[in-house]
Computed example of a mutant assay.
Amino acid sequence: MKFKLAAVILVASLPFASMASAKSTVSSDVAKIDACLKKSEETGGFGGACVGLVADPCIKAALGVSDDVAAWRSCAAFELAIWTRKMDEALKMVQNGGFPDKIKAVKDAQATFAASRDRFCAVFDTVEPGMYRGDANYCRMRETANRALSLIKLGAAVNEH
């Protein structure tokens, strides 16, 4: 865990897009979320318990070192990259379903999703650090994960037959 925290802190100085792509390649973290999603699917769950599986232990480890808000933000950005990739994969599944009305509805909703999420989540950068560890990044992670989870369900539904 200390190595992972050090890696997160090291890439924290990278631009967000580079950080997201660099961090999303950590296969053990992706596998952890994938296993959780599989278990959730098998039990008919939504997958909400899978959100935070990577960021929360990373933040907890950072708490043991210091109350470094930048490290908390990096931990959340780390998992955000995974959920962003999952959301992109789910969008492809929805498109592969071949239902033009559903594809259009999702495209229309996605056109404003990131901007709406970012406007909402920005407020967490203006409240006392620690109220929402990881600030806006943690919010973006949760919002993106919830959108990905819904799109995963929709993608499965439109590809059932």
Rank of each mutant, 00 (worst) to 15 (best):
121 C>D: 12
2 K>I: 14
124 F>I: 09
68 D>G: 01
110 Q>C: 00
58 C>Q: 02
157 A>D: 09
107 K>T: 04
111 A>D: 02
62 A>C: 08
22 A>C: 12
8 V>M: 14
93 M>Q: 08
5 L>G: 04
73 R>W: 02
9 I>C: 09
130 G>R: 07
17 A>W: 12
80 L>K: 06
50 C>Y: 13
45 G>L: 13
78 F>I: 01
130 G>W: 04
93 M>I: 03
95 Q>T: 08
5 L>R: 04
53 L>R: 06
119 R>Y: 08
16 F>R: 15
114 A>L: 04
136 A>S: 14
129 P>S: 05
105 A>R: 10
12 A>S: 15
94 V>Y: 01
8 V>E: 04
61 A>Q: 07
135 D>A: 10
19 M>I: 08
10 L>I: 13
68 D>H: 01
142 R>A: 02
13 S>Y: 10
39 K>E: 15
98 G>M: 02
155 G>A: 14
19 M>A: 14
57 P>V: 04
4 K>I: 10
82 I>W: 01
62 A>W: 03
120 F>I: 11
63 L>A: 05
133 R>A: 06
75 C>Y: 02
73 R>G: 02
51 V>H: 07
150 S>E: 11
117 R>P: 02
100 P>K: 10
61 A>V: 06
135 D>E: 15
62 A>F: 05
21 S>E: 15
49 A>H: 11
135 D>F: 03
48 G>I: 11
55 A>Q: 03
49 A>L: 07
38 K>T: 14
64 G>P: 01
147 R>S: 03
121 C>F: 11
54 V>W: 00
49 A>K: 12
28 S>K: 13
18 S>Y: 07
102 K>E: 09
150 S>C: 09
149 L>M: 03
91 L>E: 09
70 A>W: 00
103 I>M: 08
158 V>Y: 08
32 K>L: 15
49 A>C: 12
37 L>Q: 00
42 E>C: 04
33 I>W: 06
28 S>W: 15
40 S>P: 05
46 F>C: 08
142 R>E: 08
110 Q>F: 00
152 I>V: 11
89 E>Q: 13
128 E>Y: 10
1 M>N: 13
144 T>I: 05
37 L>K: 01
14 L>S: 12
93 M>A: 12
57 P>L: 05
152 I>E: 03
36 C>K: 08
69 V>W: 00
145 A>M: 01
140 R>S: 11
144 T>Q: 02
54 V>K: 01
10 L>S: 15
126 T>V: 10
60 K>E: 14
22 A>W: 06
66 S>V: 00
42 E>L: 14
12 A>E: 15
80 L>Y: 06
66 S>R: 01
138 Y>D: 08
58 C>Y: 08
85 R>A: 03
76 A>I: 06
105 A>E: 09
137 N>Y: 12
70 A>N: 02
100 P>W: 09
20 A>C: 06
53 L>Q: 12
62 A>D: 05
43 T>Y: 11
126 T>L: 14
88 D>T: 13
48 G>F: 07
125 D>N: 13
2 K>H: 12
92 K>E: 12
108 D>I: 01
64 G>I: 01
55 A>H: 04
36 C>R: 07
87 M>Q: 10
123 V>G: 12
74 S>W: 00
9 I>L: 14
146 N>H: 05
147 R>Q: 11
150 S>H: 10
4 K>S: 13
36 C>M: 14
123 V>Q: 15
61 A>L: 04
1 M>F: 12
78 F>K: 01
